[in-house]
Structure formats: C-alpha cells, structure tokens
Design a binder for these strands. Structure first.
Lengths: 346, 346
DNA sequence: GTGAAAGCGCTAACAT
DNA sequence: ATGTTAGCGCTTTCAC
C-alpha cells in the first residue's frame, strides 16, 4: 500500500512550493499557465485526491448530513431515505445514517456523536420512545449549538425547527369520505400505532369524517392499539362478527392483516368488504387483490427535507429572524382493487 | 448561534495551556488530579465536544465506512444495511451510504468521492450495470490505494477482496429437492434477474437438482429474463397452459407475480401448485397464503461484511501475506403455506 | 508569478 | 505537573 499523495509531496517532486501547487490545482489566476498545466498534469497522472478531512477542517464544514430514522426496514422510511440521498448527492452532500430502532438512547447517542463536527445538520424522524416520553432536550441542545435539524413524519411539536409532514388528518378524512361515497356504512378503524402522533391524526380524520356524514361512531368497530401483540385477536373477533363492510387500516401491519383475515373468512373484496390501507406502493400492488392505499410520497418528503436542511446549512448567517417552516406534502388515495370504483357507481 | 468551543478557548478561560487541557480530558497521568478535575468539569459544564475532523486528520483515519448498494428499496439490501449499521455502530464506526441505483457511473463516482479520506473502507454490492460490463477498475484502484473493500451478494470474481455471499446454488438445489420430495414433478423456473450472477447461480441449482433426480428439463417451464418487461406475459401463458405443479421463483417480482397469477387462475396453493420464492420475510408472511421462501439472512450478511472490513481497517499493517476470505452464509428453506408439508406426507 | 507563514482543532514528543 | 512546539493536509494572506 502506497502512502497517500499530498500537496507537499507534489511540491517536493516538482520543485515548487505547497501553496503554488494548491493555487494551481484550484485554477488561481496567480499561477502562470505553464506551471499550472505542469502541476495539474502531474496530479492527474498520479491520481491526486485532495484530502477532504483537511479541507473540511479548514472550512469548518463537512458537506455531510446526518439522517436518523427509526427503522430502515419500514419501506416508508426506506423511500424517504432514498429521496434524501438523491437530493443530498445532487448538492454534493454525503449522508451518514443512524438507525434509532425506536430507542431514545440510540437516537440521543447518534445525535451527540455526530454533532461534533461530523455532520453539518440532521434530518430526523423521531423515535417512538422519544415521542412517548416527550423528551426533546437533545434536539434543542443541538439546534442551540447551531446545528440545524429538519424533522419529517414523526415530528415533535415542541421543537422549533423545519418540518416536513403529510396531511395525515386530511387524507384520512378524504379516504373515509370515499368509502362512504361508495356505499360503505359500517367502517372499521384499525391501528397498531396509536402511540404515534401520526396514528392519532389518522384516527382523528376517521372520526371527523364519520361525524360530518352523520354516521354514529361505533366503538366496536374501532381497534386502536400501541403494539401488534393482541391486535390480531381483536381483529379476528371484529371480522368474525360480520358487522362491517369496510376497513380503514392506518398502518402496514393492520392493513395487511385485514386483507389476510378477510380472505380467510371468505369475504369478497371489495364487494363484501372494502379496504383502504397505509402501505408501500410496490407491495400493495403485489397483494391479491391489490390494496388501495393512501400514498405517503416518501421520496418527495425526503427530497424536501434535504432541500430545507441544505439551504439552512448554506445560509448560516441569517438565523436571527428566520421563520421555521412546516412543509405539508399533499397525498391522495391510490385507488386499486380493494375498494369499489366510484365512477362505476354514478 | 454560539461559536464552537475548542481546546484553545478552554485553555484561555482557565489560564492553562492547550496541551494541558488535551491531556486532562484524555485522562493523561501527567496531569494532577486537581487541574484534571477542574478542566473536566468546566468542559462538561460548557458541553465541550472534541472536533472529530481535527482528530481524524491527526490520526489519518475517519472511523467511517462507505456502503454502496444498488437499491435501498429492495428489502434484502435494507436488511443487509441494517446489519452493517448495527455492527459498525457497535465498533464506533459511522456509515456513509450511497445508492448506486444499479448505475456504474454513480457507483464509480461514489467510490471516487469517498476515497479521498472520507471513509476508511467500503462495503459494496455491485451495481447491475457494472456487473454487466464487467468493469472492475474502480474497485481495483481503490484497493491499490490501500482502501479495503468488502463485497457482498453481488460480488465480482475478478476483484481480489473479502466477500460475503449466500450459497445460492446449494440453497436452490435443496429447494428443488424439497419440491420433488413433496411430489412435484413439473417445476417451473422463474427469473427476472438472469443478468445477475446470483440469478444464474440460483438457476444452476434448479437445473442440477432436476438432473440429479432424473427429471427431464422442460424448456417451456423455464422463464429467464433480464427485466420485468415481458416477464408477466410469459408467466401468464405458462400458468394458463396448466402444465406445472410447482414454481421456483428466484426474485421478488417473479415470486409475487407467480402467487398473484396462480390465485387469479383459481389454483389452490399449495394443493394444485406449490410455490417457493426469494423474498423478504415480513411480506412473505403477509401474503395469502404465506409464501415459502429461501431466507437470505440479510442482517447476518451485513454484520459479517462489517466485521471483515473493520478488522481489515484496524490491521492495516499485515496486508502483504493477507489471504482474502470469502464467507458463505448458510441459508435454509423457510417453509410456510405455499408448499406442501413434508412431515404430513410420510 | 511564486513562496513563506499562519491557522483550522487536535495530539504527542519534547522541553521545563 | 505543565507548557512549548511541530505537524496532520489544506487554504490564504502577505511578502518578495
């Protein structure tokens, strides 16, 4: 293994000074054409790569953003991540990823570790544990140290920073309206994420839609859990009771379990029972029948979050009168085969 | 925004020298207890964080590994990634991720960009385009610069480096044997990834199993494609022809399409037709019926790759007589509901 | 047009 | 026990 090529070495071999080499490689007008060309050719030949560490130390920035997400195995987060990565890359930024695994400890540790000059800013989706315990100090400290944070999806209302969210309440509201328009009256609500803010918002959308349509709320049709543990049993009872003609399932697990149990009980979908879920596009299409879902626009969320963060990083100066933005990404119902068609009804 | 706290500032405020502060914070025995305590308390109070850039520059290492994968939306890669992240974290390493999106250009660019001192080594799963064009120079150059690479799953035979793979041929062989043992005779082979080395290996396992069981190979039962484009049509014809009693689908798309079409054609699974696929565990379970798959042990692959790379990074010295390893992760058939039970037959 | 020197934040060998 | 100094690789101001 050969030792790394540095400016110093080039200077030595070419009999010039370090600063001349630096200037030449950076196309400074101070350097004469002949020397500049000579140096550049030599550097190219030897495959010189400026050490980014040294450069970053000099410039006090890293061109790196830290992404902290609860779980990369969740396709939604994977999609957001790919959006972040793409946008960051376009702007010459690297992405360091930490998976909090829903643990507050891991999340805090990641932030502490990376906020020592390793990254210029963070994109975060708050871990479940953090959200439950309503702890925000690690975020606030980081921001007060001048390291910007952008939150997405799982945001914390008590932290002052840029945020990117989906209009969960509104989109749930419209999904229920759609079910009602296609003739459904007994609509179940399924949730395994009632501990998360997004879970509550989606449930609120369900409740509001029923109320505005003057449909009485039947508590027996509502399953709101924090875990998947006893969810399946509760769902089985609900399906067995045969009182419902539609299901609104607001997370991946409940969406797919609803499909599975409906099929196992011999229901025709969507004739006997309509299902709307929250799930990843690819897999929703792969189910039989394909599952109508509320699309979450993962890549767009990631892109927008990265855009916000990078612009924040580049404009460090004017943080005095900066107004933090909350960008809302529009969503819509992706109508597939688990719901009745509206057009064919009227 | 307050400016970052440095050793220099602490030294100034406490009226000692920079090196004293440095030594104190690093628990050097040279420093007396009183001063050490005084300095440490002050640092803690002011929330001092040593600048990692400066440290890394000094030590000529970054404690960061670069991960280059074709596609984070593929659950297999997401799983491997989570394994890498976990193991890296355990060892105090950060992970910078680049998604090649199967493009050679992007892959090369990522490697070039990061091999300037940003990362200490790479974990790579080769992009499709790179594999097709059999180009390896960017890998070789990086290795010759003293930056180690570990490849997984999509490996390149022509690059000398550590590798982590799954025994694709062997596991496919055994999957087919299983189908045969449960009474299947007309087994179809479905592939949308025949351009990838792993795709070919899995197909080879299929062929060898048939031959060793003296089952004639029926070309009509074999669909090997490089893309998903005309795959669905070909599959539809194959299923419509009603000649097969089992399907071996070696990628996610073909696995799920086989299920979907079999169901749509009114086949009972596994009574009329058995299906074995390659797909992610969670979603395989969510399908109805749940899909029997060959497990790929993503997290273990990631963990092993990270372990190999980190040990390589830590032992830079002895690269002369180093023998590159290829670690093979064992796989097995995850028997679910899309295949007949073996135990119930005998 | 080229070079010397200082400095980014940190460590460590070498004084004192 | 504490301080001085040089240096990691690079940029940049200031001399020449």
């Amino acid at each position: 293994m050969k030792s790394k090529l540095t400016l110093k070495q080039i200077a030595l071999e070419l009999g010039v000074s370090v600063s001349t080499v630096s200037k030449a490689l950076n196309d400074s007008a101070e350097i004469s054409d002949p020397t500049r060309i000579r140096i550049k050719e030599f550097a190219k030949l030897k495959n010189y790569k400026p050490n980014s560490l040294a450069k970053n130390l000099k410039y006090q920035r890293t061109n790196t953003i830290g992404v902290i997400i609860p779980n990369i195995l969740n396709p939604f987060f994977a999609k957001v991540f790919s959006g972040i990565e793409k946008e960051a890359n376009k702007n010459g930024f690297n992405v360091i990823t930490c998976i909090s695994n829903e643990s507050f400890e891991k999340e805090k540790q990641a932030i502490d570790l990376l906020s020592n000059g390793t990254v210029d800013g963070f994109i975060v989706s708050v871990a479940e544990e953090t959200e439950l315990n309503k702890v925000t100090s690690h975020f606030k400290e980081t921001i007060s140290e001048g390291i910007p944070i952008v939150m997405f999806d799982r945001i914390s209302d008590f932290v002052n920073c840029d945020k990117v969210i989906v209009d969960d309440l509104e989109s749930s509201f419209e999904a229920i309206n759609y079910l009602i328009k296609t003739g459904c009256k007994n609509i179940a609500l399924l949730s395994c994420i009632d501990n998360l803010s997004v879970g509550k918002l989606r449930a609120d959308g369900y409740l509001r839609a029923l109320m505005e349509n003057n449909i009485p709320i039947n508590e027996n049709f509502i399953i709101r859990r924090n875990f998947t543990d006893d969810f399946d049993d509760a769902l089985k009872k609900l399906i067995d009771a045969k009182g419902i003609d539609a299901v609104f399932a607001i997370d991946e697990h409940s969406s797919t379990m609803a499909m599975k149990m409906a099929i196992q009980n011999g229901y025709a979908i969507p004739e006997d029972i309509s299902i709307i879920g929250f799930a990843d596009g690819v897999w929703s299409r792969r189910l039989t029948p394909s599952l109508s879902t509320i699309s979450q626009h993962g890549p767009e969320i990631g892109q927008e979050a990265a855009r916000l963060l990078i612009s924040k990083i580049k404009n460090k100066k004017m943080d005095d009168d900066y107004e933090y933005k909350t960008v809302v990404i529009k969503t819509e119902l992706r109508q597939r085969d688990s719901t009745k068609k509206l057009t064919s009804l009227k």
